[in-house]
Design a protein around this nucleic acid. Structure first.
Length: 275
DNA sequence: AAGTGGACCTGCTAGC
DNA sequence: TGCTAGCAGGTCCACT
């Protein structure tokens, strides 16, 4: 489900409401991708700080007299967070509850590819080892044509897969990688190392543009994405290629094609996007 | 080192 | 109507 816009929309929808809250209880459901890494009772009494985001990870600082660190959360493919006052009893897919004096933060994740991990760090950067290989944030000014071009150079994988890998720039998942390449007029099959410097500039702008627009639309809701207040996103209405196999390109009316790259679906316009 | 494929888990949809 | 195969927004890990 969640690419950067969805994660950021989620963060923005509950961060200010939960900041300063005190943890009253914690409930764990079925196992997620990794264990919490701490006896959950130790979180009780901790104060919640300002929620942050790095890539598709959320960072929730927690501090008490006995602990100091935070929860690194990932929504995987099917996860979503809800923050509300009413304490409905947990459903079969609710696998993490953080009950606070200001409401219940609940992770719902049917496929359980998501994670909630305790990390004794002061911020998300050094947390766990999971963030180590991440590339730049897409809105970081250092993410520019030169950086992208250098990151892609020498790589023989398709540019779409290189974008998805997240070691150059984070945040663009399968939907937005397809959309960005379409906007930049780049064939997703182009070997990464063959992307020219001018086209790298275009791709940087396209990645930013697509993510910014999706952010504004509240993210993409293909089946079940909702922000922490249960509101769906609407970017899917604006997608030019993703999920539009066989439909006419909005620019040239060619049929949008679907191929598979690295076991993931890729959608593109065979006319507008060139090698 | 970079590239590839498998793994994790559940639910929904299309097709027979 | 009911079963099955295939597919889904992510990303780590083992292996070549």
């Amino acid at each position: 489900m969640p690419e950067l816009p969805e994660v950021e929309v989620t963060r923005l929808s509950f961060a200010s409401a939960i900041a300063g809250a005190a943890v009253c209880a914690v409930r764990l459901g079925k196992p997620l991708r990794w264990p919490l890494g701490l006896d959950e009772k130790r979180l009780v009494g901790a104060r919640v700080g300002d929620a942050a985001r790095r890539g598709k990870y959320l960072w929730l600082p927690l501090q008490s007299v006995t602990i100091r660190g935070g929860l690194l959360m990932h929504l995987g493919m099917s996860g979503s967070l809800n923050f509300a006052n009413n304490t409905a009893s947990p459903g079969p897919h609710d696998h993490f509850d953080l009950q606070t004096d200001r409401g219940l933060l609940r992770l719902t994740d049917p496929r359980r590819f998501g994670a909630v991990i305790w990390s004794p760090a002061l911020d998300a950067e050094p947390a766990a080892g999971l963030l180590g290989g991440l590339g730049l944030e897409p809105f970081d000014p250092r993410f520019n044509g030169a950086h992208l071009h250098a990151g892609l150079s020498g790589r023989r994988v398709a540019v779409k897969q290189a974008l998805l890998a997240g070691d150059i720039v984070v945040g663009a998942g399968n939907i937005y990688a397809c959309e960005a390449l379409y906007r930049a007029g780049i064939d997703p099959r182009l070997p990464a190392g063959r992307l020219s410097r001018p086209r790298a500039d275009k791709l940087v702008a396209a990645v930013r543009g697509v993510l910014a627009q999706a952010l504004e639309a509240g993210g993409t809701t293909l089946r079940d994405f909702k922000n922490a207040h249960g509101v769906a996103g609407s970017f899917q209405m604006q997608a030019d290629v993703y999920g539009r196999e066989g439909l006419p390109c909005r620019v040239c009316a060619s049929k949008i094609r679907r191929i598979v790259q690295g076991q993931r679906a890729t959608y593109f316009c065979p006319t507008c996007q060139k090698r």
